[in-house]
Design a protein around this nucleic acid. Structure first.
Length: 202
DNA sequence: TGATGGATTACA
DNA sequence: GTAATCCATCAA
């Protein structure tokens, strides 16, 4: 199935399908090993689009295959693939990947990380690929994009790789769903951390 | 206009 | 365990 068609369908199905796909940006390529699905307006309290369109989440309302990049915790960028039909506002957060090309460049961008940690986590992944808000709205499926998403290499046998699922990271309460998906046995999959109550500020 | 807290990470 | 550090969003 073409990637565009997969991404236009149900977001949890799209998320599973994204595992094993390759993402290239600025000289580094990763194979996606961990993703998280978020549904559209009114359907998923954990989604940035839950309360409707805002300046930040506007890209989520575009067509499937666009990059939604947001800034969080005052220092980190996270990359999502917009899914669903035009106007639906569902998306898949890319949480981790393993480096398949541009290893030296990735190392230079994250000097203190071990190889397995280079793109192990949503903000680490964007660091390794040098992705920032400047790439928000990029068409990941276009040939000439600085950030490109492609199907899993047909030559690789992914048929035997098991997809696991579990609760989403950083999501609490009734919004929780088993919508985090990863490839079994992949060292680059991030360790699960339950959401913690925010500490008191001074 | 001010308060709140976050789809995280690094380090003690 | 907890500090770092900006800003989108919301209540008033």
């Amino acid at each position: 199935m073409p990637l565009a068609q997969l991404l236009s369908g149900p977001v949890d199905v799209a998320a599973r399908g994204l595992l094993g796909c390759v993402l290239s940006a600025h000289g580094v390529t990763v194979r996606l090993t961990e993703v998280e699905a978020y549904d559209g307006v009114g359907l998923d309290a954990a989604s940035h689009a839950h309360r409707g369109r805002t300046p930040r989440n506007a890209v989520m309302f575009g067509r499937a295959g666009l990059a939604y990049v947001y800034f969080t915790y005052g220092m980190h960028w996270c990359l999502n693939v917009v899914c669903g039909e035009d106007g639906e506002a569902s998306a898949v957060l890319l949480r981790a990947g393993s480096i398949v090309d541009g290893l030296e460049l990735a190392r230079s961008r994250r000097p203190s990380a071990t190889d397995r940690d280079l793109a192990r986590g949503p903000a680490r992944l964007t660091q390794a690929l040098a992705i920032t808000g400047a790439q928000n709205g990029t068409d990941l499926l276009a040939k000439d994009s600085a950030v490109r998403l492609r199907p899993a290499d047909p030559g690789t046998d992914h048929g035997s790789v098991e997809v696991r699922s579990g609760p989403r990271v950083g999501v609490v309460g009734e919004a929780q769903r088993e919508w985090r998906f990863w490839l079994a046995g992949e060292p680059s999959v991030s360790t699960y951390r339950a959401a913690v109550v925010r500490r008191q500020r001074g």
